[in-house]
Write a protein that binds this DNA or RNA. Structure first.
Lengths: 225, 225
DNA sequence: CTGGGCCTTTGATCTAGATCAAAGTGCAGA
DNA sequence: TCTGCACTTTGATCTAGATCAAAGGCCCAG
């Protein structure tokens, strides 16, 4: 059930893997004593948070099923990784994994490509944080979540750009605010505005239905208003 | 004169490298027709820009001497890379470099580490864009530039955290604004404020002298205001 | 099924930084 | 050395989103 990272290397990966279940809110690894392990997410969502002494927070990454959490070789990284939903992980000891990596170029290359993807995603988000309006930010997050939340292990490029039309937010309003560089009040108001515009509807605290995916994407891209 | 990327692989790298001089403002590669080449910066500064149809810009990365521009394997990346100063590059054809990479794990690993560094830097910047005040942003950029601008090829970890006390900004006010998610007027006002506070002084449009590096760093970290 | 805490929404007001508008001023070219 | 203009500074005003404040309402424990 674990992996699908690479082809032949997967066989050697399996023996050193172990499965873990993690409750909401638990910290996977924090600061640089993230010593422990590397992991692939089997199900659930992990947020990567950068925090400052004074309490300011910024979510700098969301990892979904099939994504990696933690980086081999990475020295520092002052990040906290925390489960935002119930989580199933497939964990590897860092040292065992790095050893394996050195012997399997395909594995190393797969990880390298993931790092490049993460970098691209981070830079996309930099544009959002620096230049988008609150409304565009909220719409963008919804598109991003809808596009990634239901993609199962394996379907990396296949279902590209396909939005889920109904899903549960993996984040609280507070976490959404910390992902978008906004306050929770502004997030709430922009959600309402999108509902009034008939773009989405909600039920309970977490459930979202996308009524007009094209419009949602248009708003997210800033091609409107 | 080119490289110092890795140890033994450097010998094979040299033959496929060629040197290029680039004037200010020239685009190195753009969108995904960045077909051309990968490059190591010998001297000068490159900005990585993400742009939207409506003209909004965000600088999502600055690359200095010894840094790589362009990523092997990278499929997409809707980025524009442009020289913000006069530039000397050491270029490699993408295909030749990738072939070489496949045969030299040390090279691949070196690139992987660079990608992880870029990722860490991008996430640091996400915090800045999402959660710092204008004053903190400007101070942070000055610290960042002062720390990197004079570090020559090779001195990666050695001079870590050491700020140059006098340097020329590699960016115009407009570029600074696009890096920080601000307007040029706000940048100007915050610069003045830092000058009035005796933290820095300026001469001409580009030259900056850091009068109080500790205070500058403290302001950047948000431990003060 | 029911009470209460906590997350969320909604409203009123404030403000950091944007926008609009005019002067300066460094600097490349004549 | 001088001149033109793009870049930058400075000032006045506006506004998107923050902050402050007060209900609601979801959801879990009992």
């Amino acid at each position: 059930m674990c992996s699908e990272v690479s082809e032949t290397a997967a066989r050697e990966l399996a023996p050193i893997a172990h499965h873990r279940r993690i409750p909401v809110g638990q910290v996977i690894h924090s600061e640089h004593q993230g010593l422990g392990s590397l992991a692939i997410i089997v199900s659930g969502v992990v947020k990567l948070v950068k925090a400052q002494r004074d309490g300011r927070l910024q979510i700098v990454g969301l990892q979904y099923a099939a994504d990696f959490v933690g980086h081999p070789y990475a020295a520092k990284s002052s990040l906290i990784a925390e489960a935002t939903t119930h989580l199933e992980l497939c964990c590897f000891s860092r040292s065992a994994f790095e050893t394996l990596m050195r012997n399997h170029p395909t594995l190393e290359q797969a990880l390298y490509r993931r790092a490049l993807n993460d970098l691209e995603t981070a830079r996309e988000w930099m544009f959002l944080l620096g230049r988008k309006t609150a409304r565009e930010k909220v719409a963008s997050l919804l598109v991003s979540i809808a596009t990634r939340i239901n993609r199962p292990l394996g379907g990396v490029g296949a279902t590209a750009g396909k939005m889920a039309l109904q899903f549960d937010l993996p984040l609280s309003r507070n976490e959404i605010a910390d992902a978008l560089g906004l306050t929770i009040e502004t997030v709430s108001r922009e959600m309402r505005s999108l509902k009034l515009a008939g773009v989405v509807s909600t039920a309970g605290r977490r459930s979202v239905t996308v009524l007009n995916p094209d419009l949602l994407r248009t708003i997210a891209e800033g091609d409107l208003d």
